[in-house]
Structure formats: C-alpha cells, structure tokens
Simulated assay, not measured.
Amino acid sequence: MKNTVILAKLQTAIGAPAVPTGADDAMLVTNPSHTPVSATMVSRDLIRPYFGTSQQLSAGVHTELSFDVEIAGSGVPGTPPAWGLLLVGCYFAETVTDGSDVKYAPVSLKPDTPLTIYYYLDGLLHQLTDAYGTVSFDLESGAIPKMTFKFMGAYNAVTDTPLPAGTDFSKFLTPKLALSANTSWSMFGYTGPLKSLSLDIANSLNWFQLIGEEGAEVDDRQPTGKIVMELSKVSDQDWWTAAKDATLGPLTVQQGMMAGNIVLFEAPQAQISNLSYSDQNSKALLNGDLGLSPQNGNDELVITVK
C-alpha cells in the first residue's frame, strides 16, 4: 500500500491527545491493515406490516489498526528503539539503564500514557487516540524478524490531509536476517537447529463502554507461541517427556550480535505441548505449541534492547 505513513506518539495522560509529527514520530512499518469504523451494531427490530431490515444503530464506535515492524536495536546501548513506545502502548513498562540497555516487561495495570496514532492514506488522515494494543514476534530462518502490532483507539473524524512533510525514518536500523550469524536461541538448555519461533503476548484487547466512560483496555493476557525445529535425538533433548510432564524451563532468543543492535527475548517459564512432525526438503521437523508463564509476576516475556 503506497502513499501511506504512520506516526505514533505517547500521550501525557488518558484523554489528552498527542500531536505526532513526521520529523519525530514516524514509524517504519509494513503490512498495514485498518478498520476505520468498528462498532457493535444494535438492531431496532421494528415490527411493521411488511418485510424488510430494521435500521441498526452503532455502539462502541472505535478504530483499529495493525502493522508490522522489523526487529532491530536503536544503534546505541541504553537508548530506547524507535518502536519502544509501541510496546508501552501494549502494556509494557520501559526501564532505561543509560549506556547499557533498555528493558520492556509486561504490566498488569493500565498505563497512564496511551498512544495517539496518525494513519495517513492517500490524502486522508485517520486518528486513533487513547490507543492500546497487543503484539506478537516472529522469527523464521532466512527471513526478516518482525513484530506485529494491533491497536484499538477512539474514533476521530477522518479529514482530507496531505502526507506530512519531512518524514524521518533514520531512527530505525536496518534489520539482520534470522541466520546463524545473527541469531541464537536456547530452550531448556538445548540450542539445536531452529526453523521458526513465534511469541505472542496475547493481550485480551477490548473496547469497553459504560455511560460516562468508554475506551480500549486490556483485561488479561495469555502469552503463547509456536516453535519448529529440526528433529533431535532423545539424548540431545527429551521434548516428549517434557511435553508429557508439562515441564517449565527457560527460553531465550537473541537477535543481533553487535552492541546497539541486539534484541533479547527471555521467557523464564516456557512450556512445550501438542507435539507434531513435519517435513522440509526431506528433513524431519518437530513442531510444538508454547505457553509462557510468569515466574515472579509480570516477567513471562522480558525484552532487552542493548
């Protein structure tokens, strides 16, 4: 989709829309998908002496937007990546250690700083305010690692507005492909050949509506994932017993090897289940579903950028 720009900026408070600019707040994205008017339709169910549909009234009107962002660092250890504010809008807390790293850990209380997102499309401007979201992460051998975001925000009138001038994407680094030279991983101490891994924070994202208050919110999360790896010997790693016994153990994935462009994913209590087999180029593969449980609370998936 061409002639498209997405800008995003954290608000100072709920109900206080921000004003993102192309120079400071442009998001480098792929695969945008937009539902400009999402609502629950309430039928009037009128009784009349003839056939015909009744008018439907709109309740809970809001806007939804999803897009992908490449996984890469900020360029400088201890500097938040350009996409970090998107994680904050997905119920993550950002902790910056100057000169070292930036950590993102999930939270269970609604952040006070939702997002304002501008979506420009071919001369139209759509605005999402008080927006919150959810996110998933995908790494596949030989492909660009990506995050998929889905946001829900308050509806604002669509306007005829040209694309912003001076759009700057320089804060986004060129990603590294998921390859042996750039990617490492470990689960239960095993580090054998990996084909793909996906992790989904799986926020339960809803639009709530009360008389006097409505908006987007997350009321739970149930993080999951999927893994595909080369079939190993039992002596290398007994995945079958781990699945049978519902074993919990650490899962780590590091994308990037150079300081400033490292993104580390850590799940201290991962579980594998629903094992199955597949084939790729006559090579046997093991597939599994993943569950990510908290260890001490709000730590089931911690992301470190360094």
Rank of each mutant, 00 (worst) to 15 (best):
F137P: 01
E94Y: 10
E94S: 15
T304Y: 05
A242S: 04
L125I: 08
K176I: 09
T167L: 00
V253H: 03
L301M: 13
P250S: 04
N203Q: 13
T148L: 07
T95H: 09
Q280A: 12
S180V: 15
D24M: 07
V102N: 04
S232M: 07
L85P: 06
T53E: 08
T183V: 14
S232W: 05
A13H: 05
L275N: 06
T241Q: 07
G89V: 13
S54P: 00
T252C: 01
P164L: 09
A284K: 08
L65N: 04
A23S: 09
E213I: 14
Q209M: 12
T191R: 01
V218H: 04
L128W: 04
A267D: 10
Q209R: 11
L139Q: 14
A26L: 04
V37M: 05
P145G: 10
D45C: 03
L87S: 11
K226H: 04
K2M: 08
D122P: 06
A13W: 05
T30F: 02
L179H: 05
T241H: 03
T97D: 10
P164Y: 13
T134F: 01
K2C: 06
T4Y: 01
E214Q: 14
E94G: 12
T148R: 15
P17V: 07
M27P: 01
R44G: 02
D24E: 14
I47Y: 00
W239C: 00
L197M: 08
K306E: 13
N274M: 11
T252P: 01
G142M: 10
G192R: 04
